[in-house]
């Protein structure tokens, strides 16, 4: 047994996934450590979301392994991984439209508490859940909107709500699929500040398009093109990498 603290808390080893003849994920390996933000970038169609889905357990890779906390979780389903502490957010906002903002977070908080087969006690009066929900809403800056219907939130607020729901799982790992998608500069900036505050306590994988945000937040950047990782390194290394520049120039960035 090696020294445990050298090890990343979450690790993908040589993931493969193909659809028909198309390689969607090609020998992808990635390590996430607590206290670091690992950004995954790449042109459109590079397979970022496909990769993230394999990390979160929604897709089963054709080959390779996923490890979490010293355990091989390759065969674990998405719900099981979520319960263990691997939380994800979605590229396209996925919240419960008919629930209030508080209810959205509460149903996520409840997931940590187990007792789902309680049929009698009113969940709205559950002090334990309500306290934690309020704290989370406060943390992401939605405290004033608790009783608003989720569908009626502004776009940026919905994205914040998604983060709150992921945090409610008390995860060690956060897999964030373009959390800034569709946000204006102010909103992006707020969310970036939030991620900076969260950073010390989580291992974060950030799939993101906005290069300014990536360069500002990331400790490590990996570049995905056609499902394969063409480069991985610090911000400065990636900035100067010729392959990366080529891949992005070809895409017109």
């Amino acid at each position: 047994m090696d020294n445990a603290q050298d090890r990343p808390v979450f690790e993908a080893r040589n993931l493969y996934k193909s659809y028909g003849g198309l390689r969607a994920t090609d020998d992808l390996s990635i390590q996430l450590e607590v206290g670091k933000i690992h950004a995954l970038i790449g042109p459109n169609g590079a397979g970022k979301t496909t990769a993230l889905s394999q990390l979160s357990g929604e897709l089963r890779p054709d080959g390779g392994q996923v490890w979490f906390d010293g355990q091989d979780i390759t065969r674990f389903s998405m719900p099981k991984r979520a319960r263990m502490g691997v939380a994800r957010s979605f590229q396209i906002t996925a919240i419960f439209d008919d629930f209030t903002v508080a209810e959205n977070v509460a149903v996520a908080v409840q997931s940590r508490t187990r007792h789902h087969f309680s049929f009698w006690r009113a969940v709205t009066r559950d002090v334990q859940i309500n306290k934690r929900t309020a704290a989370l809403l406060d943390q992401v800056g939605l405290a004033g909107f608790a009783s608003r219907r989720a569908a009626d939130l502004a776009h940026g607020q919905k994205r914040q709500l998604e983060i709150a729901m992921a945090l409610a799982l008390d995860p060690k790992v956060l897999l964030l699929d373009e959390p800034m998608a569709g946000m204006g500069p102010t909103e992006s900036n707020q969310l970036a500040e939030l991620l900076e505050r969260l950073k010390p306590d989580f291992a974060i994988l950030l799939v993101e398009h906005d290069m300014n945000i990536v360069f500002r937040l990331a400790d490590v950047i990996s570049v995905l093109v056609n499902g394969a990782m063409i480069a991985s390194g610090s911000v400065d290394q990636i900035r100067e990498n010729e392959d990366v520049q080529k891949a992005y120039l070809a895409e017109g960035y």
Partner: peptide, 21 residues
């Protein structure tokens, strides 16, 4: 109840519920 909230959540967005564990 808690159970009720879970099934209502499943009606609205099953995929999200799975992501929540």
């Amino acid at each position: 109840s808690r159970f009720g909230r879970v099934i209502i959540g499943c009606k609205q967005n099953e995929r999200r519920m799975r992501a929540l564990g």
